[in-house]
Write a protein that binds this DNA or RNA. Structure first.
Lengths: 380, 380
DNA sequence: GTGGTTCCAGAAAACGTTTTCTGGTGCGTC
DNA sequence: GACGCACCAGAAAACGTTTTCTGGAACCAC
C-alpha cells in the first residue's frame, strides 16, 4: 500500500479571490461589499453577494485578525474552572461575547499562582482583544509584570490588583451579604456567632470580615462575633470549625464564606453530633444547587455567577469599542436566602458542646464514613 | 483640548524583523533559529537568541497560524457549560491542551439545538485545529451539515452522531454503572426498583436502559424493574417519580440517571413523606460534591469529568499530529459508590405508600417551601 | 479646451510570520 | 583548474485578508 495514504483531504477553502474571480471584480471590491465599508456600484455589489452566496464563502477570521489587528477573542483566566460559580461566570461571559461576535478563550490556573503569568503570556501571544481573570494571588510580581506587558482592557473578578495596573473590576457585595445574614441571625436571638471565612489574602474574605465588623459596630449587647479564618480546604475548614465549636459557651450559629469550606464545616458539625437548624444554625455562601436540596435546606448568601460574567464581558466590550472609556468598578448585589438551616437559639446548651460518641477530642475522625450517622435517626 | 486624545498608546509590538535587525541577520534566519528547523551557524544562532531575549520577543501566534495553516486552538461546544460535569470536562481538556501548547475556545449552546450549527460555523471561521462537542440533538440536519463542512478531527462526548460524520467518541459506561447499582440493590434484597432516566433520545439514557435490561435478563425471581423515562427538569422528574412511587406495591428503591433530575426525585420522595435510606433507597448519578455531603450521604454512579475531557483532548491531539490516525471510541468506566442512601428493604410497607400530610394526590405542592419539612423532625 | 472634483474600482502594499528559492562560499575530487 | 556538492543565509513569495494608493471616467466650471 502507498505510504502517503492521507484520507484527510485538505480541501482548499474558498477565499476572497475565488469570490472576486467568480464575480469578475477585484479582491478589494469583494472586501468592500462584504464589510460594507465604502460605496460600491449597485450592480457590482449584487454580483459579489451572489458569488459569495453561491460559493458559501466564509471569511477567514485569522487573516482578518492579522490585518485588522484585532482578533475578536477575549481571554478568561479562571482560578478554578471546575468551581460551580466560576463555570457560571464563564457561561455568562461567553453568552454576551458570542452575541457580539466575540469568542472566549479559557485558561485555567488551577489555583497555582505560577500559572497566571504563564497563561497571560499565552493570551498575549494570541493577541486577545481583552482579558478577564480571577487572579490566584493579588500581589504576585510576575503576574503584575505580565499584566503590564499585555496592553488590553482588563477586567478582574473578585480580586484587588495593585493600583499600578489599570483594570475594571466586578465585585460581589460580600460585605452586605454577610452583614445581612448576621443581622438575620441576631434577629432570631443568636448572640454567639462564628464566621468561618477564608484567608484575608482573598478579597471576598476581607469583605466578609468588614460585614462582620459592620454588625459588630451596631453594638447589640451581648453579641459576640467570632471571626474564624481558615484555608479553603475541607480538612482545614473542618479543624477550624471544630476548634471554634469545641469551647465553653460555643457559638449557636455559623456563617460560612469561602468556596471549599462547606463540606468541612458540615463535617465538623457532624463530629460534634450537632443537628443543623436545631442545635446550631448555619448560613452558607454560594452552595450552588446543593442549598435547596440539602436537609435541612441551607440558608445561603448567594450571587449570580452568570450575571458576574456577563457584566465583566460588557465592561470589556465597552472599552474595546471605545478605548477612551475608562476602567470601571461594578459591585453586584448578593442575596440572602433564609432556609431551614437557620432557626431559633436552642433552649439550653450553654455548658459545652455535645461530644461526638466516636473519636477522642484530639484526633479528628476520618472524613465521611459510608455508614449512616446522626442526621436521620436509624429507627423511628 | 485636542480631540485625538488617545490615552491607549498602541505601543508597537516587537516583531521578527526587529530581532533580525538587532542581530544583523535576515528575518528568515531568526525564524529558523527560533523554530529550530534548519541548521544555522553557531555564532549567528547565538546573536539571534541574544537579540530575541534582549527585546523580549514573543512571536505573534496569529501570523504563525496564518502562515502555517494551523491555529493550535481547539474548539469545545458545550451543551451546558454551567453543568458541573461539563465544567469538569472543559477543565480536563484545557489542562491537556495547554500542556501541548494548544488553547481551548469554548462555546456554549445552552441546550438550544439551533446554536450548535451556528457555533460550528464560528469555530470553522476561526479555523480551529480540532473540535470537541456535546451535541444537543444527535440527528439535527443543520448540525450534521455544519460538521461535514468543517474538516478537522472531531471528538464527540456523550452522544452518537450519524455514521456519515466521522468522529472519535468518549463515552462513559452508563450501562455498566447502572447494572452495577441495580445488582447492589438486588443484593440488599430490593425486588421492586424504579430507574428514573432521561429521554431515550440521549445516549446516556439509552445506555442506562440497557443496563437495566442486563440485570432484568439475569432473571432474579420476583424482580420488577420499572423504567421511568422523564424529561430532565426538576418539575418533570418530580411528577414522574411521584407517579412511579404512588402505586400499590411501590418500588423500594430508585436509581436515577440524568443530570437535572435529582432535585425533582428528592422532592417527590419528600412529597410522599418517605425517608431516604430507610423507607426508600436512592442511587443517584453524578451528584457532584453534593453526594457525600447530603444527608444521608448519597450512593452514586459517578464518572470522572476531568478524565473525560483529558481523554477527548488526547484523542484529538493524536489525530492533529498524525492525520492518518483514525477516529477512535473510548468508553471510560463509571464507578458505583455505595453510601447510606441505600439500605435494606423496609420491613413492612407493602400496602401502599405513606401519604404526605400536605397536598392532595392530584395536585403537586409548590416546590421547596422555605420552612422545614419531614427529613429532620422539628422537635426531638 | 483646460483644470478641478467626485465617484468608484483595480493594483498594490501591508499585517508578521514561515518556507521556498536563489546564490555565494568553501571544500573535495577528478 | 574546472566541476559538483554541501552548507548556510539572504531575498522573496506565500498565507488571506483590509486598506491605501492610483487612476480612469464623468461631470462641472471657467
Amino acid at each position: 500500500m502507498p505510504p502517503d495514504d492521507r484520507t484527510h483531504r485538505p480541501a482548499r477553502r474558498v477565499g476572497i479571490k475565488d469570490v472576486a474571480a467568480r464575480a469578475g471584480v477585484a479582491n478589494a471590491t469583494v472586501s468592500r461589499v462584504l464589510s460594507g465599508s465604502a460605496d460600491v456600484r449597485a450592480d457590482l455589489r449584487e454580483r459579489v453577494l451572489r458569488a459569495a452566496a453561491e460559493l458559501d464563502y466564509q471569511p477567514d477570521i485569522l487573516a482578518q485578525s492579522l490585518r485588522r489587528g484585532a482578533t475578536r477573542q477575549v481571554g478568561f483566566i479562571a482560578d478554578d474552572l471546575s468551581n460551580h460559580l466560576i463555570a457560571d461566570i464563564a457561561t455568562g461571559a461567553e453568552s454576551v461575547l458570542r452575541a457580539h461576535g466575540y469568542s472566549l478563550l479559557v485558561m485555567n490556573s488551577e489555583r497555582d499562582p505560577t500559572l497566571d503569568p504563564a497563561n497571560l503570556r499565552v493570551l498575549h501571544a494570541r493577541r486577545v482583544d481583552a482579558l478577564m481573570m480571577c487572579p490566584v494571588e493579588e500581589d504576585d510580581p510576575d503576574t503584575v509584570a505580565a499584566l503590564r506587558a499585555i496592553n488590553v482592557p482588563l477586567c478582574v473578578i473578585e480580586g484587588d490588583l495593585p493600583p499600578s495596573v489599570p483594570a475594571s473590576y466586578v465585585h460581589s457585595d460580600h460585605r452586605d451579604g454577610m452583614a445581612h445574614a448576621l443581622r438575620h441571625l441576631v434577629g432570631l436571638g443568636h448572640r454567639r456567632i462564628a464566621v468561618v471565612a477564608g484567608p484575608v489574602r482573598y478579597r471576598s474574605a476581607r469583605q466578609r470580615a468588614l460585614g462582620l465588623e459592620d454588625v459588630a459596630g451596631e453594638r447589640r449587647r451581648g453579641l459576640v462575633l467570632h471571626h474564624v479564618e481558615t484555608e479553603l480546604t475541607p480538612q482545614a475548614a473542618r479543624a477550624s470549625t471544630r476548634a471554634a465549636l469545641d469551647v465553653p459557651g460555643p457559638p449557636t450559629a455559623i456563617a460560612t464564606g469561602g468556596d471549599g469550606s462547606l463540606p468541612g464545616v458540615i463535617a465538623a458539625i457532624d463530629d460534634l453530633g450537632l443537628a443543623i437548624g436545631e442545635d446550631i444554625s448555619l448560613v452558607t455562601s454560594d452552595p450552588g444547587d446543593l442549598g435547596p436540596v440539602f436537609r435541612p435546606p441551607l440558608a445561603a448568601i448567594t450571587r449570580d455567577g452568570a450575571l458576574i460574567g456577563a457584566t465583566a464581558a460588557e465592561l470589556l466590550l465597552e472599552r474595546i469599542v471605545d478605548p477612551r472609556t475608562g476602567a470601571r468598578t461594578v459591585i453586584l448585589p448578593t442575596v440572602f436566602e433564609p432556609r431551614a438551616s437557620v432557626g431559633r437559639v436552642p433552649a439550653r446548651r450553654g455548658a459545652g458542646p455535645v461530644r461526638s460518641p466516636a473519636g477522642t477530642p484530639g484526633a479528628l475522625p476520618r472524613p465521611r464514613p459510608a455508614t449512616p450517622r446522626s442526621g436521620t435517626t436509624p429507627r423511628r
